[in-house]
């Protein structure tokens, strides 16, 4: 999933301060799972904003809505009525969701309420970890299913740096050394020979380095 975390309330207040009526629009998919922008978070944020404006003796009207997925037209459409009657929409979806909204509602103001962070998983309750960089050229097969492009702080493809100690990455005591995990996993799988394989310079053209990417499925274009 895509993870995100809500922006600090004071940043949000600055973003919406110029408007009288604001719709807070949640998204019921990824950002809901990571507790950043689902129905519950929309309600809490709306309540906090109301309290804050009241305390400052300012007025603001806040409406709430959450659609199933803000990155799909089909679901975005449901927001059109409320969007039309508000001055601005604060989207709690990921950056893709915000921009999907912008494409659909060319004249409406859509503001980001979360910081989109990474493609990851919920490793354990309340803890999310980054697992994939969407480099466009997956080589997990040779690395025993652990991605060094994403999880090694130096994107090393030919083995660990000299800073790896006791399974921990040199950059942070809370971060596992990806190469330690790779070696562990290959040991379990009996594929340690993979480590001797020379990995040539990565082709980054398929990644964001090659410019914004587009995926075309001819068979689905009508």
């Amino acid at each position: 999933m895509i993870t995100a975390s809500q922006k600090p309330i004071n940043e949000i207040i600055k973003l919406i301060a110029p408007y009288k009526k604001v719709l807070i629009l949640g998204c019921g998919t990824c950002v809901k799972t990571c507790f950043a922008g689902g129905e519950d978070e929309v309600a809490v944020l709306a309540s906090a904003l109301r309290l804050s404006f009241k305390k400052k003796a300012m007025t603001i009207e806040i409406e709430e809505q959450t659609v199933e997925r803000q990155c799909e037209n089909e679901f975005i459409q449901e927001a059109s009525v409320k969007m039309a009657r508000n001055d601005a929409t604060l989207s709690l979806a990921c950056g893709a969701g915000v921009q999907a909204m912008v494409k659909r509602f060319a004249k409406n103001i859509v503001l980001p309420g979360v910081n989109t962070t990474f493609i990851g998983i919920q490793e354990s309750q309340g803890i999310f970890t980054e697992e994939c960089s969407g480099c466009g050229n997956c080589e997990l097969g040779i690395f025993g299913g652990v991605c060094p492009v994403t999880r090694c702080a130096k994107k090393l493809l030919n083995g660990p740096c000299g800073g790896s100690q006791k399974g921990i990455c040199e950059i942070n005591p809370d971060t596992d050394c990806a190469w330690h995990l790779i070696i562990e996993r290959l040991t379990t799988l009996g594929q340690l020979d993979n480590l001797k394989t020379y990995i040539p310079p990565k082709n980054w053209d398929t990644s964001l380095s090659g410019g914004p990417r587009k995926l075309v499925r001819e068979d689905h274009i009508i």
Binding site: P8, N10, A48, L49, L51, S52
Partner: peptide, 8 residues
């Protein structure tokens, strides 16, 4: 933390 953030 929310109350602190909004000055309550």
């Amino acid at each position: 933390t929310i109350l602190d953030d909004i000055g309550m």
